[in-house]
Nucleic acid binder design. Structure first.
Lengths: 348, 348
DNA sequence: TGTTAGCACTCAATTATGCAGAGTGCTAAT
DNA sequence: ATTAGCACTCTGCATAATTGAGTGCTAACA
């Protein structure tokens, strides 16, 4: 028999199975399902439906004659069609807002506390990425002399993040020279988007500068390097509640646990993971949808937070595929909004 | 019978037991010991000696008629009297030096890579604390205006760390005023130790300033707060190789594992742990010597790294009490030295 | 044609049982 | 003081036996 379209009753059953499985972490059988939910059909009928759902790929059987568990495809359908956004528990939300009225902390510390809070609410591990420098504008630029042959570049972006980088000069600069350089660069860089500071633009700038001021090419190159190439490509990732994964029964297996913790240990991997997420408002990545083999027993719920109307960073929650999607999705949404608001205020 | 002083033979046996246990993670019995080590005495004699050692508190029996395992007291004796410092595998050491010739990275990134390397060599989790700001001198001080009512304080310490803090002003300052303030503070703070910037000193400074320049008290207070009270008390802790704990059989027990990972999740706890360690060259903390209940199945080996001759930060390795002390101690020593050297160069 | 009751079968998890191995403590002989 | 020998203890492992939840199939039913 050809596998037909999924009908209303199948939806109900699938939804019930997933809800139950999320709660218990156990395979669900037709008998228990018939008992706990009042569908008005017998366990035998449910059995047939479950068999169909398995054939269609929404369910799996861990072994013959065990109950069924949802497949990744099942979760995907669940997330896309079977749940609607709930709303954040208002007590949690309040905690959120209360704790972050104090804006004297600096953005780093806010991100780190936000990550902690997010995992406290969801009871899963969470991660927050710093706004990417290259997507933001220069708000303030300053050169600070340190010693004869070294210089500190301080750059404040419109996201409120302060970046700094020490560069070693080969040539000694006088106070006047530094001052001039400072004025010049500050004037030309302010309000520019960092992504527009490409080679061409900088070449042009250098020419302008050289006309008025004799300066070896080397210095300009160094400043450019310090400014654009190394740091700006990177952004910090703040982790919260790493130890919450231990509370999930699927990670009682040390092999699985090791894989995941190993990923969390490597910031660069998390960074590239975050870089591959599109800038949608919300994105759910279920099991094998993640190309990292080590995380294919996990799901991640991401949201983008923004400053004004410009996407700038990501927040996410990592848990087992058997995740409380409904709760997590609404929480992540709320926290992303709160974070957007806080950072927007801070920066503007 | 009164328990007498530990004699040479007992020492040999204790040492053998601990070595063997570190290798196998199993309780050691008299028979195996007699077989693998050629003491020239029978297992029965060893048995008697082991019984004495247990009575003296150096050994423990997990259950009746099992072999013996070392107690914390046993490990303490082992570390204090039975091992001598080995030397770092020179291939590792070389790797160390090679990878860190490049000094363009900035101190943060050096610390983070150092922590990674330390745990790669030892195969245990490691931690490195940033030099404490309050123990270092001001090398450079600069105020950067951001907007009309906010100001960035940039402070470079002689350890090469760049600290920054944004403060919100209530009063608007002109460019000239900021410039003056900058000059004034920069002049008076440079080369001062941050720990000496107490209330008295700042009061005095404020009086001097007010004589020449009309400025509301509020601003000075704000700068002082930004400078001394919040950030400087803190310092970052870099963790490396968190997932290595999973390789230790003693942490196959999820309860234990949870406790330890939970501690590693909380930077503030690690900070206070590090703060309680004296500035000796090397310090070993074994099991219950740590007052944190959660870490009493762990040992930690700490060393202090310094800039010039001034102690400035700590590095440490965390493992089970059954740790390869000899190897770890020498490695930690070597890495601390290497780090001291790198930072000294960087800052001087 | 969809639904259901009933039955045989399957498999994991739990419990019971027996056995082997490593170890101890004690005693008596050296 | 040392050692051989022996009785005893306890864990770990392997091998059933039992239980229970669950499935698939078939035949009867609305």
């Amino acid at each position: 028999m050809m596998v037909e379209e999924i009908d209303e009753r199948k939806k109900q059953i699938l939804k019930a199975i997933i809800n139950e499985h999320i709660l218990t972490a156990e395979p669900i059988g037709s008998r228990t399902l018939a008992k706990t939910y009042q569908f008005g059909i017998s366990s035998a009928t449910i059995r047939n439906e479950m068999s169909d759902l398995e054939e269609m790929g929404y369910l799996e059987q861990p072994y013959t004659s065990a109950g069924r568990i949802p497949s990744d495809k099942g979760y995907r359908f669940y997330v896309d069609s079977l749940i609607k956004e709930g709303n954040c528990l208002h007590s949690d939300y309040q905690e959120l807002l209360n704790n972050f009225n104090l804006k004297k902390q600096g953005i780093q510390s806010i991100m780190s506390s936000m990550a902690k809070m997010l995992s406290k609410i969801t009871r899963y591990t969470s991660l927050i990425s710093e706004p990417q420098l290259k997507r933001s504008k220069v708000k303030q630029f300053q050169l600070v002399p340190i010693e004869k042959n070294s210089l500190l570049i301080v750059l404040i972006s419109d996201t409120g993040i302060v970046h700094n980088k020490i560069i070693q000069l080969e040539q000694e600069l006088s106070a006047r020279q530094i001052n001039y350089l400072n004025q010049f660069l500050s004037g030309h860089l302010k309000n520019k988007e960092l992504i527009s500071l490409n080679d061409d633009f900088m070449k042009e700038l250098e020419l302008k500068l050289i006309k008025r001021f004799d300066l070896s090419q080397g210095i300009f190159e160094l400043i450019y390097q310090g400014l654009v190439s190394s740091e700006p490509a990177e952004f910090k990732v703040y982790l919260g509640g790493t130890s919450y994964i231990l509370e999930q029964p699927e990670f009682n297996d040390l092999e699985n646990l090791k894989k995941v913790l190993n990923i969390l240990d490597h910031e660069e991997i998390l960074r590239s993971l975050l870089n591959n997420i599109p800038d949608k408002g919300l994105e759910v990545m279920i099991g094998h949808e993640n190309e990292l083999e080590e995380m294919q027993k996990c799901s991640i719920v991401f949201a983008t937070y923004s400053i004004g109307d410009k996407a700038s960073g990501k927040i996410g929650v990592i848990g087992p595929t058997r995740m409380e999607y409904s709760k997590v999705i609404s929480t992540v949404n709320s926290v992303a909004k709160a974070l957007s608001k806080i950072i927007s205020e801070l920066s503007g």
